[in-house]
Simulated assay, not measured.
Amino acid sequence: MKKGIGILLLGLLLLLAACGSNEKNAETSNEKMMIQLDEKNVAADANDIFTVTGKTTPSATVSIGDVSIDANKKGKFELMHVYESDKSYEVVASKKGMTEVRATVHVTQPTAIKEEKKEQEEAAKEKAEKEVTENAKPNAAKITFAMLSGNPDKYARESYYLKGQIAEVVDGGATKYLKVNMTQAGDTWKDTVMVIYTGTTDAKKGDIIEVYGTIYGTYAFDDANGTTITMPGITASSINVVE
């Protein structure tokens, strides 16, 4: 009799334990992901960084694109991301075994910051162009075509100047490719380099031009027969048609 009562009690305990476990599992499965942003409109700073803060499911992972952080045990998070442009970014909260949730934050950069950055960029561009112009002719006097042709890569990124006749113009859309003969020999021109220019120019075949820029290094391309041709390349910052 005592044995039967013991078995009955053991069965009852197992049943209660199973019910408790089922209740706990049900409780866990009913938990839902959540995400709440402190601000839905945020501003990017002068370093092109914006910060999104808020609250989500404790220890969930919060991400924008491929940048992510883990929320703390209370669910609070602070995520920093690179500002790309004025637009909306999707904030995703996820956790293993649960359905992810999303929120949207709209990011802008104050006009004053944009204008200041534009002024800085223009000033830097003017400084770089001035340095190219000042150093181009002295470098050209030291770096002859023979030296340039012998090892173009040795002089890569050096400021350079040349005056020559256009042998061919290839329109690559935003970028123009000009084969220029840079050495005058009587009434003819020789010693070809490839001038690479991003911008607009009226220069055409037969024109005599002045070029300020930097040495690209070895420029390689395939001709109509599929043969690879190499020659010195010059990245032009300015082109002026002189005749």
Rank of each mutant, 00 (worst) to 15 (best):
N240M: 14
K204D: 09
A156D: 02
D171W: 06
V242L: 08
M182W: 06
V193A: 04
E134G: 03
D191P: 00
G150N: 10
A71Q: 07
I143R: 08
L79I: 10
D171T: 00
E243I: 05
W189E: 09
S159I: 10
D38N: 15
K96G: 08
S237H: 08
T175E: 14
T201K: 11
E90W: 03
T183N: 09
D70S: 13
V193R: 08
E90M: 11
E39S: 14
H81N: 15
K137D: 04
M34I: 09
G233Y: 05
L37G: 01
V211L: 02
K176T: 00
N30Q: 13
K204T: 06
L13M: 15
M80C: 14
A26F: 07
Y219P: 04
A128K: 15
V101A: 10
K117Q: 13
A167E: 05
V211K: 09
A43S: 08
T28W: 15
I49W: 04
K95C: 01
K87C: 01
I196C: 03
S21W: 13
G199K: 11
V169I: 04
K74N: 14
N25F: 07
T99C: 03
I5G: 00
K40L: 00
T61E: 15
H106M: 04
A124L: 06
S159R: 13
D207E: 06
V242Q: 13
G172L: 09
G54W: 02
D86S: 03
I35V: 02
N41K: 14
L8E: 14
T108S: 15
S238V: 05
A203G: 06
E243A: 11
Y160M: 08
A185Q: 12
E129G: 02
V82E: 15
V105T: 03
T183R: 10
I64F: 05
M147L: 14
V82I: 08
I49C: 09
I209V: 11
E210A: 02
P232Y: 09
G6D: 14
K32H: 15
I143Q: 10
A141M: 07
K117G: 02
A141H: 04
K117L: 01
E134N: 12
E27Q: 10
A112W: 12
K127T: 06
G173C: 03
K114V: 11
K127E: 13
K137H: 03
E126P: 01
A17K: 06
T218D: 14
P152I: 07
G20F: 09
K204G: 03
W189C: 02
G233Q: 02
A46M: 14
A136S: 13
P110S: 06
R157H: 11
T227C: 00
I113K: 13
T175C: 02
N151V: 00
L178E: 00
G11N: 07
K204H: 04
D45C: 02
A140L: 03
M182Q: 11
E84P: 07
L178Y: 04
Y219R: 04
T214R: 14
K130L: 10
I209W: 04
T56V: 12
